[in-house]
Design a protein around this nucleic acid. Structure first.
Length: 498
RNA sequence: GACCCGUUAGCUCAGUUGGUAGAGCAUCUCCCUUUUAAGGAGAGGGCCGUUGGUUCAAGCCCAACACGGGUCACCA
């Protein structure tokens, strides 16, 4: 650790600071009173002032040295804090007794310094702090990446995100936007009177979605637990309990492949509203997205990966079955003919499990022929009942459910439906999920007796929805990969390189 | 899981038909008191991803593996 030549040199400097200057290289009790941004604002007036400086007004700033230019008896530094970046000027004549010649050799790019000084304007018209004193308050040991190209290696950016954040302004902005989006989503639901709740992350039965779970173990109880794949069944238990509108923003864990839109842990908001239906949810979803665009100062037309997406509401709505021929281009006459769809899939070299029922085969066809073509926001509605084990059947057609999914730029962003609250029907649906599992659907639900029992006590008519926050952030920050919107995306372990 | 691409100094990258490893930034020494990726002079810094193979000789050719990226598949 810390054994390359650069690190050794910096450790030497750190020891010099400590032993010869009696200046501990890792100080506490900073006296910073001004951020770099505030400094720049407060000293703008100097452009109009005689002499373009004011030696009487002192400021203390602190931050990381990003650039360092030594010119003999004077030096310029760029000091960065969270608010921005500020140029500092230190000169031999303004520091005490030869201190300049010592400190200038001990400062490295990457160190945190604290500077007391006053504002002045340089010959090139840059507001700068003229240092009366400078101290290294945190000595860096490791060398920062090159100042011009920064860090471009994606593996390094993901594994050492702190370096990415130090070097890449764009990356920092993505995470600021992400935080803003989550705050505003929270505000949106709070303003609706919806209550934020927390439900278990460790489940005895991995329910609420079709996915393979992570398994962990509880030693004291001697039982295996599953990291949750969705909070749905717990949130609906709360509706049974009498809360009429609840939401939860938190992580889900799914033990599946990773790619540009899938990370094993990802963030969802799920919300459940009693006495609302799935049409209400679509309207709420539209107003949420409009609200976010407004808060982010974005227009209705956004650019995602060089493609224009029209986010204007209301979003397009199309029935699932209709989308198969209207968008997917399948022959209208074959969409209820299982064998014919299988034939169409086979033409595209898609392997299908022929034992599955029509609804599953249609779902496969949707994935293959339709999903990618949904570029502008589109609600796909009225899904087959087989692939919607927790959704309420349509009153006129019991083979479909009152459910929608929202697709934008070919990706699923949201999924909502009228909640199934008939305990007997729910029991039967779980049973057919168990059957599907035996037929080879590794992601089908297990039976959840307690949940069925909860419904037995009565859940009022309810609609619920989940929105994938990461994908929404990708869309709104023009990020190509989910890893670009996760601070610490999942990566394979690697031998330590330090 | 399949295919393609990548892996060389702290970082960003060159590296010819196979013949003793290169640049810029960064670092160290020296010069330089208003610079803007500051400038000038000099120096140090390498398990060329790992392991095998071919060859008199491998950063370069071959194979396997590791990690990453991309495309597809799987997956809500």
């Amino acid at each position: 650790m810390f054994d390359n030549q650069y690190e050794q040199q910096k450790i030497e400097k750190s020891l010099t600071l400590k032993n010869e200057l009696k200046s501990f290289p890792y100080k506490q009790n900073s006296k910073r009173d001004t951020t770099t941004k505030e400094f720049l604002e407060k000293n703008k007036y100097l452009f109009d002032k005689e002499g373009r400086r004011n030696e009487d007004e002192k400021f203390t700033i602190a931050g990381r040295v990003k650039l360092y230019r030594v010119m003999g008896k004077a030096s310029f530094l760029k000091i960065e804090d969270e608010s921005g970046i500020l140029q500092a000027y230190i000169s031999r004549d303004n520091l005490t007794d030869g201190y300049y010649n010592i400190i200038k050799k001990l400062i490295d790019i990457g160190d945190f310094v604290e500077i007391i000084g006053y504002g002045f304007i340089t010959q090139k018209d840059e507001i700068t702090i003229y240092a009366d004193n400078i101290e290294i308050i945190t000595k860096s040991i490791c060398t920062l990446p090159e100042k011009f190209h920064g860090i471009t290696d994606k593996e390094l950016r993901y594994r050492q995100r702190y370096l990415d954040l130090i070097m890449n302004e764009g990356s920092k902005n993505i995470f600021k936007t992400r935080s803003k989006i989550i705050t505003e989503i929270r505000n949106f639901f709070n303003d609706m009177g919806c209550m934020e709740v927390e439900t278990p992350m460790m489940h005895d039965i991995a329910g609420g979605a079709n996915a393979k779970p992570f398994i962990t173990h509880h030693n004291a109880l001697g039982v295996d637990k599953y990291l949750r794949i969705a909070p749905e069944l717990y949130l609906k238990r709360l509706i049974v309990g009498g809360f009429e509108s609840v939401f939860e923003i938190n992580r889900n864990f799914r033990n599946e492949g990773m790619d540009a839109t899938h990370n094993p842990e990802f963030t969802m908001i799920e919300f459940y509203l009693a006495y609302k239906n799935y049409n209400d949810l679509m309207k709420i979803t539209e107003s949420l997205i409009s609200f976010l665009l407004e808060k982010l100062n974005k227009k209705d037309i956004i650019t995602y990966q060089e493609e224009e997406i029209n986010m204007q509401t209301p979003f397009k709505r199309i029935k699932y079955i209709d989308s198969l021929y209207e968008i997917g281009g399948l022959d209208k006459n074959i969409i209820n003919d299982k064998d014919a769809i299988i034939g169409a899939l086979k033409k595209k070299d898609i392997d299908v499990n022929e034992k599955l029922s029509l609804g599953y085969i249609q779902a496969e066809a949707f994935d293959v022929f339709v999903e990618d073509k949904l570029r502008n926001p589109t609600f796909v509605t009225d899904f087959p009942v087989e692939i919607s084990p927790l959704a309420r059947r349509n009153d006129d057609d019991d083979s479909i459910v009152d459910r929608f999914e929202l697709f934008i730029a070919g990706k699923e962003i949201a999924n909502g439906f009228n909640e199934l609250n008939d305990p007997l029907d729910q029991y039967e649906r779980f049973k057919s999920q168990v059957d599907a599992k035996e037929l080879g659907d590794g992601e089908a639900h297990d039976m959840d007796d307690d949940y069925v029992k909860a419904l037995g006590f009565g859940m009022p008519p309810t609609a619920g929805e989940g929105i994938g926050i990461d994908r929404l952030v990708m869309l709104l920050t023009d990020a190509h990969s989910i890893r670009d919107v996760l601070l610490f995306p999942s990566m394979k372990p690697q031998q330590p390189t330090i």
